[in-house]
């Protein structure tokens, strides 16, 4: 097979490019510590979420000094709880599941973006710093009212933050 020298050069360059991309992604995973949503949670029956400890009562819970967990449910066409309130400078882990069809939980203008699939629990941990407000949208079509599905993530100043009593 006779391959022109220039073409060999390009073949080499293309391989370099591919390896560079894979290396960046690997750096993102290991160096920068970006984790992918995975299969670490058990499956769950979407029809009986009401009886579940975490999702029966969607809420924010404090689990450590600056650590919070959010148990959120997406269903046609709302997010619960709404708004989601967390304090500044904290580590927040979201546990999100669906009560009906596939949705997404996507925090506008950020990298927090995950599919919400009935039967599965999506988890993601993020660091929040400054106080502020972020919109939450569902970016997966979920039925005729899909465009009405929105929520709010509010990062509050340390001194104003208070967990709702859920006795």
């Amino acid at each position: 097979m006779n391959v022109h020298t220039y073409e060999k050069v390009w073949l080499g360059a293309a391989m370099v490019l591919i390896v560079f991309f894979i290396a960046s992604v690997t750096y993102g995973a290991i160096g920068a510590g970006v984790a992918m949503v995975d299969d670490s949670e058990e499956t769950i029956d979407p029809d009986t979420l009401g009886e579940d400890d975490r999702f029966g009562d969607p809420r924010v819970e404090q689990v450590g000094d600056d650590e919070y967990e959010v148990y959120a449910v997406a269903r046609t066409f709302v997010f619960q709880p709404d708004p989601i309130e967390v304090p500044e400078d904290s580590t927040v882990t979201f546990y999100i599941t669906s009560g009906d069809v596939i949705h997404s939980f996507s925090v506008v203008g950020t990298n927090a973006n995950v599919m919400v699939i009935p039967g599965e629990v999506a988890t993601m941990t993020v660091e929040v710093d400054e106080p502020g407000e972020y919109g939450i949208v569902c970016n997966e079509y979920c039925g005729p009212g899909h465009h009405d599905m929105e929520g709010l993530l509010v990062v509050q100043p340390e001194d104003e933050f208070e967990l709702e009593d859920d006795e």
């Binding site: 970006v34 670490s40 925090v107 950020t110 941990t125 993020v126």
Partner: peptide
Amino acid sequence: YFVEFLGGDLTVVGT
């Protein structure tokens, strides 16, 4: 990758 993505807010980190 390095500016828009890794420089962005609320990056999902490993538990």
